[in-house]
Design a protein around this nucleic acid. Structure first.
Ligand SMILES: [Zn+2]
Ligand SMILES: [Zn+2]
Ligand SMILES: [Zn+2]
Ligand SMILES: [Zn+2]
Lengths: 133, 133
DNA sequence: AGAAGTAATGTTATATAGTAACTAAATCTG
DNA sequence: CAGATTTAGTTACTATATAACATTACTTCT
């Protein structure tokens, strides 16, 4: 039952899951080209869009990059913590917080549809590593 | 006492303030080229970076675009509400919320340095316009 | 003031990111 | 199967951003 393009999706998802850091579209492209030869950006972007719609992959807006969804529950809007030192990204789910957020900006009559919450900083392991030195 | 580049900054800031919607770097470039002739992207990007450091301009990460800061207090981290219909952007300040956010992701030992909070949806005026129809 | 050093700006070229428009193939419908 | 429709491949292009180097303007010291 796998339609044609789902193979790209599966392969890209596997690739993203191997990295804990976000991967750029053109990195994906380069990797897949090594295996499959000629391949157009369009193919990658289409697969990435489909993966996003299915909630398997998130786009990291502040990095123009992509990461595999780490949460179990699909399509749950998520919060990304991005380490500036090692590049790792952690995904957290905090419905209450996003709710508060919706309320705050809803005060002026704005109806939220999509939340982008990304926090840059230093992750726990980089923090402790730096505490050593 | 105005160094050369500060003129670009002033001019770009004026331009951004005329638009309530975010402006792309290359739109800025095109506009300034009409007035000043030949001009390189670098010039625009350098001025935009300086403006961001000074807290006069925010980059809208999810749009690759820029907007003049609408808040009085400089450098206050801000929340952007972006209307999908009309493109307008509203800036809100909610220190408590960002504090909560820091706490949530801080639970795992992450130290936040920079917050990106952008909400896409429909603004009040677009909502009421659509309620008519 | 003049020379030498430093920092800011200008210039050229290129890297990186993303999409439009069209073609070809597969799948569906009757 | 014929024809319509959706899906994927291909080509070419547009948009976004930065690197590397050249030039100019400021600073500092003599
Ligand atoms: Zn997720
Ligand atoms: Zn880290
Ligand atoms: Zn602001
Ligand atoms: Zn609107």
């Amino acid at each position: 039952m796998t339609t044609r393009g789902e193979m790209w999706q599966a392969e890209i998802l596997r690739l993203l899951r191997q990295n804990h850091a976000p991967v750029k579209a053109y990195q994906v492209l380069a990797t897949l080209r090594k295996i499959h030869g000629k391949l157009a950006p369009t193919t990658i972007y289409r697969a990435l869009s489909a993966l996003q719609e299915r909630g398997r992959v998130h786009r990291v807006e502040s990095l123009n990059a992509f990461i595999a969804c780490q949460s179990r529950r699909d399509k749950q809007p998520s919060i990304l913590s991005i380490c500036n030192e090692c590049g790792s990204v952690e995904e957290s789910v905090a419905p209450d917080l996003l709710n508060d957020l919706s309320n705050v900006i809803g005060e002026t009559g704005f109806s939220p549809k999509r939340h982008v919450v990304e926090v840059h900083g230093t992750c726990a392991s980089c923090n402790s590593r730096k505490a050593q030195a």
